[in-house]
């Protein structure tokens, strides 16, 4: 799941020079770490909705926690898909 998610991040966000192995599951996705920004967050939200039919609601969910890392994102998607 985590590797699948990494590939989704690379494809959805056009991270041409980055491979799945370059992304640490536990490092921050935004600002530091991978260095993504707020437009990436929207794009990634859309990609996750399309692929997993999981909607992350900025009003209800703790978005910062969910998007903290690949690991937290994978855990959240698996918990709501069940």
């Amino acid at each position: 799941m985590e590797n699948e998610l990494k590939q989704l991040i690379i494809d959805a966000l056009d991270l041409e020079d980055i491979s799945v192995d370059d992304i640490d599951s536990h490092e921050p996705l935004f600002n530091t770490g991978l260095g993504l920004d707020s437009i990436d967050a929207l794009e990634l939200g859309l990609a996750i909705r399309k692929k997993y039919d999981v909607k992350i609601d900025a009003e209800k969910d703790d978005v910062a926690k969910i998007f903290a890392s690949v690991s937290s994102l994978a855990a959240y998607i698996e918990s709501v898909r069940r």
């Binding site: 437009i39 794009e43 859309l46 909705r49 399309k50």
Partner: peptide, 9 residues
């Protein structure tokens, strides 16, 4: 289909 937020901006 839904628009890409990146493309839109």
């Amino acid at each position: 289909e839904e628009l890409s937020p990146t493309a839109f901006s």
